[in-house]
């Protein structure tokens, strides 16, 4: 069970190899975390992450699931909660695929996959988690959205639109669980230097996985509904969302 400071003892990380996700787990492991389930598609990378956590006396269990297959969501949820064998204090949704916009532009298959991985699968998993957490009478859900969801742009509109779907779904989910003991927390990072963005040159206000983790863990402990990383982006995007298209098109990053 989480304690009075909101520090969880049990967690499930969907996107068990995500750099941001693992940075969050890393912080929780320094506090009260004792069991985490890592859900992902790459067995050896998941095992590596699990061993590192075990070395810190956290029980780590691996569950395999491919987010490109929306039908795998139900199984992934059942196996993850089953592996925990105790109430789950925190669900972290960190699955995401930036894609390659030039290649996605004209490809129906690639575009479909982008929406499955970024939207359909995460939303399906969250629906399953909602049921499990409401039955528990307690639990927190942390979803990694992106500032890319606030306004799509040429360089990554397929990704941005996918995140937009997840972002809106998460806000609705948060409303739907009011009064159930479950809370939902949405994180909108800007450009984070991780393996997802390794091939790109950093955009303005770029940040790191540990810095996003700090924002995310603080949001969970304080119960903040929507947090930005870095925090200043909340105000930057207040303006950017209404920038004329001609200017928006020319912005760097």
């Amino acid at each position: 069970m989480r304690d009075a400071f909101g520090q969880p003892q049990t967690a499930i990380l969907f996107g068990g190899t995500s750099e941001i996700g693992l940075a969050i787990v890393d912080r929780l492991a320094a506090a009260r975390l004792r069991h985490v389930v890592l859900v992902g598609r790459n067995p050896s990378a998941l095992e590596d992450a699990a061993s590192a956590l075990r070395a810190r006396s956290v029980t780590a269990t691996v569950v395999l699931a491919d987010a490109a297959d929306a039908a795998s969501a139900t199984d992934a949820v059942d196996q993850a909660f089953g592996a925990l064998g105790a109430p789950c204090d925190l669900v972290i949704m960190a699955v995401g695929l930036l894609g390659d916009q030039a290649a996605d532009d004209d490809s129906p298959e690639r575009t479909a996959t982008m929406f499955v991985v970024n939207t359909a699968w995460p939303a399906a998993v969250l629906a399953g988690c909602r049921a499990a957490l409401v039955a528990q009478g307690t639990g927190q859900i942390l979803v990694l959205s992106s500032v890319a969801a606030l306004r799509t742009r040429r360089a990554n509109y397929t990704y941005g639109a996918g995140k937009q779907g997840l972002d809106g779904f998460t806000l609705g989910l948060a409303e739907s669980v009011r009064g159930t003991g479950v809370t939902v927390h949405l994180i909108r990072p800007g450009f984070v230097t991780t393996k997802m963005t390794g091939h790109l040159s950093p955009a303005p206000f770029s940040t790191t996985a540990p810095a996003v983790a700090e924002v995310a863990v603080t949001a969970v402990m304080k119960g903040t509904p929507v947090a930005y990383a870095p925090g200043i982006l909340r105000y930057v995007f207040l303006g950017l969302r209404h920038l004329p298209s001609a200017l928006w098109r020319k912005l760097p990053g």
Partner: peptide, 14 residues
């Protein structure tokens, strides 16, 4: 279900 906490009003659950 009903919302419950202790006197410190932390860790609300149903």
């Amino acid at each position: 279900m009903e919302r419950l906490t202790g006197w410190g009003r932390t860790m609300a659950v149903q």
